[in-house]
Design a protein around this nucleic acid. Structure first.
Lengths: 219, 219
DNA sequence: GTCTATACAACGATAGAC
DNA sequence: GTCTATCGTTGTATAGAC
């Protein structure tokens, strides 16, 4: 419990209100992830944010709106995985992306978000939809677009890029994701992660350059 | 399997206490699924069960123990899918099982259980473990045992039966399960369900009868 | 704008009558 | 065993001082 408010008077750029709002949002995310929506209290969020309840309510109106802000803003920022360099070896690039994806999806922060969305989805349908379209579905769309570029370059044989991207990601998650969500995994099991990456890659048809489509087994 | 306790009264029927307990458990399941653990109130459970709070507390001690009883007893009873007739056409039997499995896993009752376990898993690790070993893992084990029997009969070519059973089930669930958990699916989309069953079956190696193991193209 | 203090309802859990 | 009535606590949300 250190009084850290000291010398932040310098910047007027991101207005004080903006920074306060961000701090509250960060504290709320922490507490919601730890205690769930109903289990979290605005008192605790206020303590963590070193703010008062009145300030929080003046920013967000009520607890539900604060929750919505946490989920929506997190979905957009945290799941931003770029696909890395697209040139060169397609399989290697895809393997690197796969590893980053699994690490992200099994990280405590993202697992916490998923838990909140799953737990409260039926009671906050708009929030669940916003989370999925801003997070997981956006990633699938990005990967699908990359698949399409690779296909156009003759590096990949895919039929429906978005569909195959979705299948690729779900093969990576598989059973691991569910067990991690339930808290049964202390940390990502390296051996199984490697196995899943290999399996997901094995289902991708890497057409060799120069042999665009026809699967003709020479020799 | 029913829960007829061994050396009970000659009157034969489940004692009044047993019935009351079951009623309370049923009501608690309903309310927990609807409102989550922290959001559910013992008052509401008492109303639904048409009992008083004092009765509930005399049976279960406190709210957490009631929650544990709900999850554990449900995991064992609800996910009891028998594998059906094992004789005859293996692929057809597996397809029938697959359809029942998807219907069960996407049913509102089981989705509600999963939501509770995922939401509260980090705070109730013992309950999460009990749910998984009594539910999903038991199903995988049963299917794995069936795979092994089929393999021994020369009807199936599997390497690691439990592993392949687990993969089979996770291919069936895939992306659908996650979206259903978040409440984004009103009802199981028949077209996609059929597609998933076909895909899961296509990854199974049905060795034709009379050609047990060796992949040798005679003739 | 941000705080302290508080209003008011609802929570989990229990005591005591029957 | 099961009920009614109630305890003390804690929840969300707000009013008023600075």
């Amino acid at each position: 419990m250190t009084t850290t408010n000291g010398q932040e008077s310098a910047r007027g750029k991101a207005s004080r209100g903006e920074r306060r709002r961000a701090e509250i949002l960060q504290a709320a995310a922490e507490v919601f992830v730890r205690s769930g929506y109903a289990g979290a209290t605005v008192d605790e969020i206020a303590n963590v944010a070193q703010a008062s309840k009145a300030t929080i309510y003046s920013f967000f109106g009520d607890k539900a709106a604060l929750f919505a802000a946490v989920i929506v803003e997190r979905a957009e920022s945290v799941l931003a995985l770029d696909l890395g360099a697209s040139g060169g070896d397609v399989e290697a690039a895809l393997a690197r992306f796969a590893r980053r994806y699994i690490a992200a999806v099994l990280s405590p922060e993202i697992l916490g978000l998923y838990r909140l969305v799953i737990a409260e989805g039926p009671r906050f349908p708009d929030i669940a939809r916003a989370f999925f379209s801003g997070g997981p579905e956006r990633i699938a769309a990005q990967l699908g677009a990359q698949f399409e570029r690779w296909r156009a370059a003759g590096l990949l044989a895919v039929d429906d890029p978005l569909r195959e991207a979705t299948r690729f990601l779900e093969t990576l998650r598989g059973d691991l994701h569910l067990r991690a969500l339930a808290g049964l995994l202390s940390e990502p099991p390296e051996r199984e992660v490697a196995l899943r990456i290999a399996e997901a890659l094995s289902r991708i048809d890497f057409t060799p350059p120069g042999v665009p489509i026809a699967p003709k087994p020479a020799r």
